[in-house]
Design a protein around this nucleic acid. Sequence first.
DNA 1: TGAAATGTTGGGGCG
DNA 2: ACGCCCCAACATTTC
Length: 482
Amino acid sequence: MTVSIVWFRRDLRLMDNEVLAHALVMTHRVIPVYIHAPGENGPWAMGAAARWWLYHSLAALDAALRERGSRLVIRRAATSRAGLRALVKETDASLVCWHRLYEPAEAAREDAIEAAMVRAGVTVQTFPGHLLLEPEAVQTGSSGSYKVFTPYARAVRTKLVLPKPRPAPHRLRVVPSSISSLPLASLKLLPKSGWAASFTRAWQPGEAGAHKRLRALGKKLANYAADRDRPAVDGTSHLSPHLHFGEITPARVWRTVAAQAAGRNKPGLVRGAETFQRELLWREFAHHVLHHFPATPERPLDARFAKFSWRRSAALLHAWQRGETGIPMVDAGLRELWTTGTLHNRTRMIVASFLTKHLRLHWREGARWFWNTLVDADLANNTLNWQWVAGCGADAAPYFRIFNPVLQSRKFDPAGEYLARWLPELKKLPARYRHAPWLAPAQMLARAGIRLGVNYPYPVMDLAHGRAEALDAFQRWKRRKR
DNA sequence: TGAAATGTTGGGGCG
DNA sequence: ACGCCCCAACATTTC
């Protein structure tokens, strides 16, 4: 009887699972395992919202395995390596396999584990994971890494070869009862407070939920190019946490979207598909950049920004985190984040610009908050996007590109629906004043039951002043850096 | 995947 | 008819 271990991490699916398929072909008995080693990733240990997701996704995976006669073995260990070693010994496994991860710390850990396994006489087989192309698969002409999105995306599109879709296995062999597994609850993945309870209304973690979202995307595709920018409209895919946890592969998403646009004479659909695929390519780009510049979660890619005069203010940061800045579009976004564990892409850019420009707080403060509160928190995406907004990253928007949150609000939420949804205290204010209540006539505010400074804050920062100060700080920095 | 300031153009009102 | 001014609309430049 040969035994293999399938090490699940961020590939919590049964369809399109090359690792599982390989193990099933190579060995008689397959032991699916998840190893909880929370101390392993240091400051970038999984954030609280993502742990909520992980809990439910592991539960879904276990249920899917049980439907097929198997089960998920859950272990806790000081390190993944120790956990795997113990399980190999217990089961006398001759093969361990996994989908590769690309975060620098993960990749280094995998190398060490593989070396140790091989020394112990265990075969290790790893497979590409969670990207369309591995970071090393795309290189510039001079065999370097890309720092600019457009040529990178072009290179990926030419190189792209999608694997054939693979159905989930029908039947799996039972995992012997002698192999112990911890109850999922004992991993303490869920927050102690009721904070995340409201996430359940917004999300269905797990493979089935991922495929539901993919089906729903088909109906949104024709209007995707415009709707994705409107936070009040359900126009985006909501696939990011599913992709992060590998509940669905980007290859399957790419293929499905392409198939929906192909052969239909609908220009909107073609445009929507291309726009969406571009978003998938940004995800690829983020991993490419993190792979080649592993220090970027802590340090700006543009090293000159290390000397930028970021402001330190616990009070401003706190107001931003809680959605109490007095700027409705900013507050609506941050309250959506707190309530649902997600934030509309347009709003992400707006709140990030406000933090790094008007408030001039360090982009890392924002990145850290997102890391803990987003269910789709992903080190590569989070790092790239925050540095992009702050102006210090790969292919970044220049620092002086400052979003005016009121103009953005008027442009992308003209009827003020998104604002009303997340800021019920402003609901009675006519839409045209909802974007900037401090500009509303006193009588109008009174009629809407709003008392600025009492039940909705005054702006913590005057927009014109914040903008001017940010530009000034940028000028001073530019003069000094030479 | 900005916004604001500045520059240019052209139509219309008017003496 | 003409020059002049105003100003909206659009384009370009600057931050």
